[in-house]
Amino acid sequence: MGCFQSTGRRQVPGHEDPIVLASQTAFTVSEVEALFELYKSISSSVIDDGLINKEEFQLALFKNRKKENLFANRIFDLFDVKRKGVIDFGDFVRALNVFHPNVPQEDKIDFSFKLYDLDNTGYIERQEVKQMLIALLCESEMKLADETIEMILDKTFLDADVDKDGKIDKSEWDNFVVKNPSLLKIMTLPYLRDITTTFPSFVFNSEVDEIAT
């Protein structure tokens, strides 16, 4: 029992019940509430409508409103599960959950496969990898000759595309990441293990002490 009179749950559009979200993810109820504090801050940075649009997402990621960015767009699309052009709170928590250290490796592998399957064809195709490589080079202001890019692609497909059909299917991807575990590093955010300490202000703002976790 908490010390305060319960005032009921926050009524915010798209604010799914933290208890339900906690039951579906590796987060505790308190952590879901902490994520809501973060979500509120991101979702009100440009338009205060309680939803994260692409501009707000990019702003949160890069601290500036960069131009179109292939990777940020792709991550946004994977967070925007319902394809509404905005990320609601439930989408946000469930997508971040994939990056939780305690989430099974298979979920991370699935997410990374979708991330790189730019055209959602069920395969990671050579031209998609080339497109991402070129985007990375532009982003990091690195220059590589086209033949060097083709060499990198050749080597990658030699290792990953076991059946030599010019595209990487899901089972080839599974085997490839097992052999190259460093590729999954981006799929884990150690931060997420203890999220409530990341948001000291949250302790004063939330109703968490009233909720059984």
Partner: peptide
């Protein structure tokens, strides 16, 4: 050196994948 790396190792270095930035609001 980039040539000795596979494409995905390079791609995964994109700062866009650094979702920790989301937590620095």
């Amino acid at each position: 050196r980039p040539v000795s790396m596979n494409a995905f190792e390079l791609i995964s270095r994109s700062p866009s994948f650094n979702l920790e930035n989301l937590f620095e609001q």
